[in-house]
Computed example of a mutant assay.
Amino acid sequence: MNWAAFTSAEPDLAKAVEERFGAFTHHVLATLRKDGSPRTTGLEVRFLHGELWLGMMPDSLKARDLHRDPRFCLQANPGEGQSMGGGDVRISGHAREVTDSGTKAAYGEEVKPPEPFHLFRTELTEVVRTSVEDEKYLVLQVWKPGQPLRTIKRT
């Protein structure tokens, strides 16, 4: 399921997630190394035209990881000294490299990344937002394709 479908299914959560990612430029991407261990790296993300895009430098380790195993987890930058303002947000899914030159060119004209670059379109498998409510509840919102939004409150 792409970003547009998620936005249609859960518009309020999607807006909160986009705002959280929009608060900072750099975020943390987790991929899987060849031996199966996790790798975390910094990354800029873009929400454009109903898609969540991941752009990367050519032949970067994270791009190699995604070519080998497309699973990823993306964590929004919490910011320095932030008390989870806007919540803690994570997106998991599969990243598929875009090889269509027209799509890459359109993205490149809009975003202006350094050339050359890898471009990945995402397919979402989970979106999680953790926030604090009334200074006493930890609230988890968990969305998965085909399932209703689950909200869990903990004291």
Rank of each mutant, 00 (worst) to 15 (best):
residue 1 M to I: 14
residue 2 N to Y: 10
residue 2 N to R: 02
residue 3 W to E: 04
residue 3 W to N: 04
residue 3 W to S: 09
residue 5 A to I: 10
residue 5 A to C: 07
residue 6 F to G: 05
residue 7 T to G: 10
residue 8 S to Q: 08
residue 9 A to V: 03
residue 9 A to N: 00
residue 9 A to L: 01
residue 10 E to W: 03
residue 10 E to F: 02
residue 11 P to K: 12
residue 12 D to Y: 03
residue 13 L to P: 01
residue 15 K to D: 07
residue 16 A to R: 00
residue 16 A to S: 07
residue 17 V to E: 04
residue 18 E to T: 05
residue 19 E to S: 12
residue 20 R to D: 00
residue 20 R to H: 07
residue 20 R to Q: 05
residue 22 G to D: 11
residue 22 G to C: 12
residue 23 A to W: 15
residue 25 T to K: 05
residue 26 H to L: 10
residue 27 H to Q: 01
residue 27 H to I: 03
residue 29 L to N: 06
residue 30 A to H: 15
residue 34 K to Q: 09
residue 34 K to D: 15
residue 36 G to K: 09
residue 36 G to E: 06
residue 39 R to C: 14
residue 41 T to I: 11
residue 42 G to F: 14
residue 43 L to P: 00
residue 43 L to C: 03
residue 44 E to H: 13
residue 45 V to K: 07
residue 47 F to Q: 13
residue 50 G to P: 07
residue 52 L to V: 06
residue 52 L to T: 12
residue 53 W to M: 10
residue 56 M to Y: 05
residue 56 M to G: 09
residue 57 M to H: 05
residue 57 M to Y: 06
residue 60 S to A: 13
residue 60 S to I: 10
residue 61 L to A: 02
residue 61 L to T: 00
residue 61 L to D: 08
residue 64 R to E: 04
residue 66 L to E: 06
residue 68 R to W: 06
residue 69 D to E: 08
residue 69 D to G: 01
residue 71 R to H: 14
residue 74 L to I: 04
residue 75 Q to Y: 02
residue 77 N to G: 04
residue 79 G to Y: 06
residue 80 E to T: 00
residue 80 E to S: 08
residue 82 Q to H: 04
residue 84 M to Q: 11
residue 85 G to D: 00
residue 85 G to V: 03
residue 85 G to N: 01
residue 86 G to P: 07
residue 88 D to P: 00
residue 88 D to E: 13
residue 92 S to K: 12
residue 93 G to N: 15
residue 93 G to P: 05
residue 94 H to C: 10
residue 96 R to D: 09
residue 96 R to S: 12
residue 100 D to H: 14
residue 101 S to T: 02
residue 102 G to T: 15
residue 102 G to W: 09
residue 102 G to V: 13
residue 103 T to C: 15
residue 103 T to Y: 12
residue 104 K to Y: 08
residue 104 K to G: 08
residue 104 K to T: 13
residue 105 A to F: 09
residue 105 A to C: 14
residue 105 A to L: 14
residue 106 A to T: 14
residue 107 Y to I: 10
residue 111 V to G: 13
residue 112 K to F: 04
residue 114 P to C: 03
residue 114 P to W: 07
residue 115 E to P: 05
residue 116 P to A: 15
residue 119 L to F: 03
residue 121 R to M: 11
residue 121 R to T: 04
residue 122 T to V: 12
residue 122 T to H: 04
residue 123 E to Y: 01
residue 123 E to D: 01
residue 125 T to D: 03
residue 125 T to G: 01
residue 127 V to P: 15
residue 127 V to R: 03
residue 127 V to M: 14
residue 128 V to P: 08
residue 133 E to P: 06
residue 133 E to V: 08
residue 134 D to S: 10
residue 134 D to E: 04
residue 135 E to F: 00
residue 136 K to Y: 15
residue 140 L to P: 12
residue 140 L to A: 15
residue 142 V to D: 07
residue 145 P to Y: 02
residue 146 G to M: 12
residue 147 Q to H: 09
residue 149 L to F: 00
residue 150 R to K: 06
residue 150 R to Q: 03
residue 151 T to G: 11
residue 151 T to K: 12
residue 152 I to W: 14
residue 154 R to A: 08
